[in-house]
């Protein structure tokens, strides 16, 4: 397991398989919290944290409990249960130790509870990296993928908060003001990310 493999995993997660711009998961916080740079970064850090934590917990659950007991079909329910509890925990911790961030995230932190990007990362990890042998190596790969996915989410949020700051200053036609022009901008950003397709294979392949 070389550094090259982990670098490829992270770069793939950030640029090629970007959860927001390429797989269209986690659109709700992407559109909701990207208005201000500060809250976009705060939200992204919360998402990175939750993605890592969720993978760290769900991957062993899948490996040691669900697969061992032939309960693979319970994956979605168990994962949602565990992620929901984790997000609650993160919220309690933030409220206690980082009240400013808790206030600025507002309703969006509970929204990570049912965020498809977080669940998507967990299920993707199980599908892509779970091997019958060598739990340690696949676990590490899954954690790196989760971290990379969170970073990709953060990059999308930060990029888009900049785009939105520019949109706010511009005079869009009245019928496009607000959400419509935001969605168009998001679509253009997403199309731009198609340019990364195949880049990783050519660098590391």
């Amino acid at each position: 397991m070389s550094i090259k493999v982990f670098a490829a995993i992270i770069l793939t997660a950030v640029f090629v398989n970007n959860y927001v711009l390429q797989q269209f998961l986690g659109i709700c916080p992407f559109l909701g919290v990207s208005k201000k740079f500060d809250s976009a970064v705060g939200m992204s850090i919360a998402v990175i944290f939750v993605m890592l934590l969720a993978t760290a917990v769900t991957f062993p659950i899948q490996h040691f409990i669900l697969d061992k007991m032939d309960l693979g079909y319970m994956q979605t329910i168990v994962f949602i249960l565990v992620i929901a509890a984790l997000v609650q925990l993160v919220e309690i911790v933030l409220k206690k130790y980082v009240p400013a961030l808790h206030a600025s995230l507002g309703v969006y932190l509970p929204l990570i509870t049912t965020n498809c990007a977080v669940l998507g990362v967990c299920i993707d990890n199980v599908d892509s990296y779970m091997t019958a042998t060598g739990f340690g190596a696949s676990y590490a790969q899954a954690l790196f993928n989760a971290f990379g996915s969170g970073l990709g989410f953060m990059m999308a949020m930060v990029l888009f908060s900049g785009v939105r700051a520019r949109i706010e200053d511009n005079d869009a036609p009245p019928s496009f003001k607000g959400m419509p022009i935001t969605l168009i901008a998001a679509a253009i950003l997403s199309v731009a990310f198609f340019g990364f397709t195949g880049v990783i294979e050519n660098i590391f392949g």
């Binding site: 659950i61 409990i65 669900l66 007991m69 309960l71 319970m74 329910i77 168990v78 249960l81 565990v82 929901a84 509890a85 609650q88 925990l89 309690i92 911790v93 409220k95 206690k96 130790y97």
Partner: peptide, 24 residues
């Protein structure tokens, strides 16, 4: 088996959360 496993995971989560909400 499925019911038991999910219930046990749920109870563990619940205990963890209630402890956390008391402590913090």
């Amino acid at each position: 088996t499925a019911i038991l496993v999910v219930s046990v995971i749920g109870v563990i989560c619940a205990v963890m959360l209630s402890v956390a909400s008391k402590v913090m």
